[in-house]
């Protein structure tokens, strides 16, 4: 009975707004499901998504396993010239990103429209 290959799926909604992919994770992203979240998001990047907004309005909880997904995605987008912005962080999630120094290195907006503006500005 190994945990490997036995991961729970993360719940992530997705929607295209013109050429911006808005991803909406909900519930928890932790060590149980971060692998599936990473595979889903990087799959979108590799499939051509270059402007990504992560709408965190329904994300209750993120652990360092979820932070890893954010960092890996940001690194991949830097390599391909893409952009990513986060929005609608709940206080608990905001605190975890702050303590980890992520607020300083990622683009974080209050609202979804502002985040879409950030990834589409020329």
């Amino acid at each position: 009975m190994s945990d490997a290959g036995n991961q729970v799926q993360a719940t992530i909604g997705s929607e295209w707004v013109d050429d911006v992919l808005v991803l909406k994770p909900s519930g928890r992203v932790d060590s149980n499901n971060a692998g599936s979240a990473e595979a889903m998001i990087l799959g979108q990047v590799d499939g051509g998504a270059q402007r990504i907004v992560l709408d965190m309005a329904e994300l209750d909880y993120v652990s360092s396993a979820g932070l890893r997904v954010l960092l890996v995605t940001a690194k991949r987008l830097r390599q391909t010239g893409g952009r990513m912005a986060l929005c609608q962080l709940r206080p608990n999630v905001h605190e975890v990103l702050e303590v980890s120094g992520f607020l300083a290195i990622l683009t974080v907006c209050d609202g979804r429209e502002a985040a879409i503006g950030e990834v589409t500005k020329t």
Partner: peptide, 24 residues
């Protein structure tokens, strides 16, 4: 301690869990 000042490109993946424990 992870270097929290590093850019996205230089930032090492991992090491944050223990930082969160020791901070909180």
């Amino acid at each position: 301690r992870p270097d929290l000042e590093q850019s996205v490109e230089d930032r090492r993946v991992g090491g944050l869990g223990l930082h969160l424990i020791n901070t909180m």
